[in-house]
Simulated assay, not measured.
Amino acid sequence: MLKFTRRGVQAAALAVALVTGTASVALYPSQPAQAASEADAHELVSAARFAFDDLTDRGSHATLRALLKDAKGVMIFPSVIKGAIGIGGEGGSGVLLVRGEDGVWSYPGFYHLSSISIGLQLGGQENRFLLILMTDNAVRRVMSGDVQIGADLSAVAVESGVDKATGTTTGRRDIYYHAETQGGLFAGVSLEGTKIKSRNKMAAKYYGGSVTSRDILIERRVSNPQAEELRTLVSSQSGL
């Protein structure tokens, strides 16, 4: 199981700051910091592999695995910090893999998830998200590098193996998503209004040069052997 370590400490510190009033809206920027290193990118890919394995390797998640068989793409956010009291937000980096026409999964592209919410939130809460992209439109919009869930794409939560909105998995949405906290299922979460932006500078660090999302996910012009375990795992859980 993925262990929340360094970011868990950051989440706790954030919770204290929010309670004491020393935090500001700047803690939840609309875009991620771009000073990522190659080591950060490698760490994110490794964390994504552990998170994906843990999120899909349970009997109660049979629906997730069933959806993966028809998925066009998969996004894994292994650590998303959610906080606050009153005005809250969440943010974290993750990866996107796209299934090609030949059924082979791509190497990962890098993205950031962020949102601002109003209402009572649990300060410093850390979550992980699995987003299953079911349509070509979802893949195209996410690859554009700037998309908002709800406004640009439809999404529905999968909780305990059931489509929250309909009670079934019939009728494809653009995105199905599942969220968990360190302690288990994160029920009631909504990604409505969440923004997803590309992290091109992190991708450049990981692949050793400037690349676009299309270069990575569609054209398959770059590779990194460190991502092979992640690709193999996604392939095995999607029925290939």
Rank of each mutant, 00 (worst) to 15 (best):
R140P: 10
G193S: 05
R172P: 00
G88C: 01
E159V: 13
M202P: 05
M143G: 14
R172I: 00
G167H: 14
R220C: 03
I116Q: 09
L68K: 02
S30Q: 14
S60L: 07
L230S: 08
Q237L: 14
L55P: 11
S115L: 08
L2W: 08
A66S: 15
G161T: 05
A48Q: 06
P32D: 00
L191T: 04
R214I: 02
R6W: 11
R128Y: 12
A204V: 01
L18T: 08
D215V: 00
I196G: 09
I87D: 02
P108C: 10
D146M: 03
S24E: 10
S93P: 01
A48S: 15
R128C: 01
G209H: 09
S46Q: 15
G100C: 08
Y111S: 03
V158Y: 03
I87S: 04
D54I: 03
K164R: 15
L133R: 11
D146Y: 12
S238P: 04
A71C: 01
D70Q: 12
M134E: 07
V162N: 04
G124Y: 10
K197G: 10
S24F: 00
A165S: 14
G124N: 08
G171H: 03
S238Q: 05
A84E: 14
I149M: 05
Y107C: 07
K69Y: 06
G209V: 07
A15D: 04
S115E: 02
T194E: 01
G150D: 11
F110C: 00
F186C: 09
G103F: 02
A39W: 07
Q34W: 00
L44C: 10
Q237Y: 11
E229L: 09
A51K: 13
L27Y: 00
F50N: 13
L191Q: 05
A138P: 06
V95W: 10
P108V: 12
V19K: 01
S106L: 02
A13P: 00
G124H: 08
V147P: 02
K164E: 15
G94Q: 05
K72D: 01
Q182P: 00
N137R: 11
M202K: 07
T56G: 02
V9N: 00
H61T: 11
L113P: 03
G109A: 14
V139Y: 05
F4A: 09
D152Y: 01
A15V: 01
A23N: 00
F110M: 12
R49D: 12
S144Y: 06
G94S: 09
L133S: 06
D163R: 14
R65C: 10
R141G: 00
K3I: 08
N137D: 12
Q182W: 11
A47Y: 15
E219T: 10
I76M: 04
D57C: 03
S198H: 13
V189R: 03
A84F: 01
M143K: 09
V211I: 10
T22M: 05
G109P: 13
L14G: 05
